[in-house]
């Protein structure tokens, strides 16, 4: 663990890098991670108790550089979402696309750092995943990010609580992988409906 409070967690899979930020301490890989690891090299980074800020984002960018991770997809869960957004604002050319799982509300803006002011300028393709049974943050933060960000997509995961990837791992991984691979074009269906050729 670095002095800034960033901890490196588990690593799994091969392929393009997918960095997963969590604010929780010691969270192991979930069934969703195992599915994601079939397509990506998943690196978990934990930022327990570290408030989101541009400074933390700069530290994370440095940590990833030192790990040899230049360009990457970024996933963040709950309280880590604002940190992920600062990271994308700090290094937009390095973050290919983002998945925010049950994102926490935007922190109150400080004088020098306002996500609300910066997000309309962030073009990173971003998938917001919100469970229909999320009674922690609920749908309001997802809607707020969707309204502010020019390239955000809000998807409700039916019957999932705040731990979307734990509650509906296959549903979570399918839409996350599809979005990371196709970005905005993930809205175009590729599901076959032919019953017999």
């Amino acid at each position: 663990m670095s002095e800034t409070g960033v901890r490196e967690g588990h690593v799994a899979g091969e392929g393009a890098a997918l960095v997963h930020l969590t604010a929780a301490r010691g969270s192991g890989p979930t069934p969703a991670h195992r599915l994601l690891a079939q397509r990506f090299r998943v690196l978990a980074l934990e930022t327990p108790g570290v408030p989101a800020s541009p400074e933390v984002a700069a530290t994370l960018a440095g940590t990833l550089q030192s790990l040899g991770v230049e360009r990457f997809n970024l996933m963040a869960t709950a309280d880590a979402a604002p940190t992920a957004l600062w990271l994308a604002l700090h290094a937009p050319e390095r973050v290919l696309a983002m998945v925010l799982e049950a994102p926490a509300p935007m922190p109150a803006p400080s004088h020098e750092a306002s996500l609300e002011r910066r997000l309309p300028g962030l073009a990173t393709p971003t998938l917001l995943l919100v469970g229909t049974r999320d009674d922690v943050a609920g749908p309001a933060p997802g809607r707020a990010y969707k309204a502010l960000m020019p390239n955000a997509h809000l998807v409700f995961v039916y019957d999932a609580g705040p731990a979307v990837g734990a509650d509906r791992p296959e549903a979570f991984a399918e839409v996350a992988i599809d979005f990371l691979e196709r970005r905005e074009a993930f809205v175009i269906s590729r599901a076959a409906t032919v019953i017999h050729p």
């Binding site: 995943l129 749908p139 809607r143 969707k146 309204a147 997509h153 809000l154 998807v155 409700f156 995961v157 039916y158 019957d159 509906r168 549903a171 979570f172 399918e174 839409v175 993930f186 809205v187 175009i188 269906s189 599901a191």
Partner: peptide, 17 residues
């Protein structure tokens, strides 16, 4: 009721838009 375009990742129904 939802104010913004949304996707639905269900068990039986799936919509992206």
């Amino acid at each position: 009721t939802e104010p913004h375009p949304f996707g639905w990742q269900g068990r039986h129904f799936r919509y992206r838009t």
